[in-house]
């Protein structure tokens, strides 16, 4: 009964137009299943048997990517409720709890972000311990490091958005560092030498920290700036780099293994 219905669906025009191959039961159709699907063809058709063992990759790169997708979905849901202004930010987050049915998106987003930081470290550890950064994969390791930095920055910029004490002071501690940037922070070494006729060029109103916060303290401009970085700029850059990263995994010969 079900089998017949299933066959009827799979032989119909609609199914056939979406999946341009038969049921993946033999080598040819299984290869087609990968080749004709834009998402699945991130993979090659066939892979080294030892490379896909869980004990080899720990699936950590895959989980990191999956958590990134979770962050995008839950992040969009959060953006429906959240307004990045000093008046509303805190109360929007508070309201999420009280008013939204099944309002888990904030929890999923926050714990997913923490989890992603952990999985990316573990992914890096596994790549290191299997020596998978060695030729020909040097460049993909470098892209990975940039992805690591961007992941941490994503987490960092997101930390401010709830606009509670935890958020504001964590970002204050973090962004105070920028004040000490050599040459371009007011309290950085050598910055006092950058002056014209005794007028200092680097001061609290134009130094590196000011650039980060769009102000001299963590205020409304910083909130807006972090919001835009968090929701638009960094995710877009990460997405582009991820495309390169995955592409290179394939072009560098697939998951590494002994020669």
């Amino acid at each position: 009964m079900f089998a017949r219905f299933g066959n009827w669906v799979r032989e119909g025009q609609i199914w056939g137009s979406v999946f341009r191959h038969g049921v993946p039961r033999d080598r040819r159709t299984r290869a087609m299943a990968i080749l004709t699907n834009v998402f699945l063809h991130l993979h090659p058709v066939a892979v080294r048997k030892s490379g896909i063992r869980l004990s080899f990759t720990w699936c950590m790169g895959g989980l990191t990517f999956f958590l990134f997708l979770v962050e995008i979905v839950t992040g969009v849901l959060l953006m429906f409720y959240y307004r990045p202004t000093v008046e509303y930010a805190y109360f929007d987050i508070q309201g999420l709890r009280a008013t939204v049915t099944l309002g888990l998106q904030r929890e999923l987003h926050r714990w997913g972000a923490h989890a992603m930081v952990i999985t990316i470290w573990l992914h890096m550890l596994r790549v290191f311990l299997t020596g998978s950064y060695k030729p020909p994969r040097e460049f993909n390791w470098s892209i990975g490091v940039i992805l690591l930095v961007l992941t941490l920055l994503l987490s960092f910029t997101g930390y401010l958005l709830p606009w509670d004490q935890l958020a504001m002071w964590a970002i204050t501690v973090g962004s105070n560092m920028a004040r000490a940037t050599p040459g371009v922070g007011t309290e950085g070494p050598l910055s006092s030498f950058i002056q014209i006729g005794g007028v200092p060029l680097v001061h609290a109103g134009d130094d590196a920290r000011f650039g980060l916060l769009a102000g001299t303290f963590v205020g409304p401009n910083a909130l807006l700036r972090f919001y835009v970085l968090h929701c638009v700029f960094i995710p877009v850059v990460v997405t582009v780099l991820l495309a390169v990263h995955f592409w290179r995994v394939r072009k560098d010969g697939g998951i590494s293994g002994p020669l």
Partner: peptide
């Protein structure tokens, strides 16, 4: 990890591992 020529098809071997990892996660 030996066996460079030992290849398996991504569908079903890898795709299913990914699916299970995704569900558990």
């Amino acid at each position: 990890e030996a066996g460079a020529d030992d290849k398996v098809l991504v569908w079903p071997d890898l795709v299913y591992i990914e699916l299970i990892a995704l569900v558990l996660c």
